[in-house]
Simulated scan of single mutants.
Amino acid sequence: MSSNSPADPPVRRIDRVLAFMALGIAVLSVLCFFAIMISTAAGMQHADYATGVWPIVAVLPLVGLPIAFLLIVALLIMSIVRRGKAGRS
């Protein structure tokens, strides 16, 4: 089955933007999570996380992963609605 079959509606710009935003936020959150794990394993003390960029690195996985999940759900809903409209016409 080819990816550009006549039954498939064209991919819109908003779909691509949502997909890349979700991917980018998820990757950045996972990288921050690994940075925290590596710094903890390297012996960094808890007090060092209160200064510099570390507060942002610590909070980003807590906020970024749910946002990426919601973007993926929105993309899925938009895709289902788009395919439903294309199937009816």
Rank of each mutant, 00 (worst) to 15 (best):
I38E: 05
A26L: 08
M78D: 00
A68N: 01
L62Y: 09
L76N: 05
K85I: 11
R16K: 08
L23I: 09
G87H: 03
D15K: 08
A7L: 14
S3H: 13
V17E: 04
R82V: 03
I36D: 10
L70K: 03
R12M: 03
G24S: 10
C32Y: 00
Q45Y: 03
N4S: 14
F34W: 03
F34M: 05
L60N: 13
R88E: 02
I77A: 14
R12V: 12
L75Q: 06
L28M: 12
F69N: 12
G43P: 04
I36Y: 13
G64L: 06
R82M: 01
I67A: 09
Q45E: 13
S89D: 13
V27T: 06
D48A: 15
M78C: 06
R13F: 11
G84E: 11
F34S: 01
L60G: 15
A42C: 01
R83E: 04
A68I: 10
A22D: 02
A35G: 03
A41W: 14
H46A: 13
A74K: 10
I25W: 07
G52R: 04
L71K: 01
S29T: 04
C32N: 10
P55H: 07
V53P: 07
A35C: 08
L23W: 10
V17Q: 08
Y49E: 08
R83V: 01
V63I: 14
I25F: 06
Q45D: 14
L70I: 08
V57N: 05
A22P: 03
G87E: 01
A86H: 13
P61K: 02
L76T: 14
G24Q: 04
K85Q: 11
V53S: 13
A47I: 08
L31N: 04
G43F: 05
M1T: 13
L71F: 08
I67P: 05
I72T: 13
F33H: 01
D15T: 11
R83S: 01
F20D: 14
A86N: 09
K85C: 04
L75N: 05
I67W: 11
G52S: 05
A74V: 09
P61E: 12
V73P: 00
K85Y: 08
A74T: 09
W54T: 05
S29I: 06
R82W: 01
S39F: 02
M37I: 13
L71G: 02
D15Y: 10
L65R: 15
V81D: 05
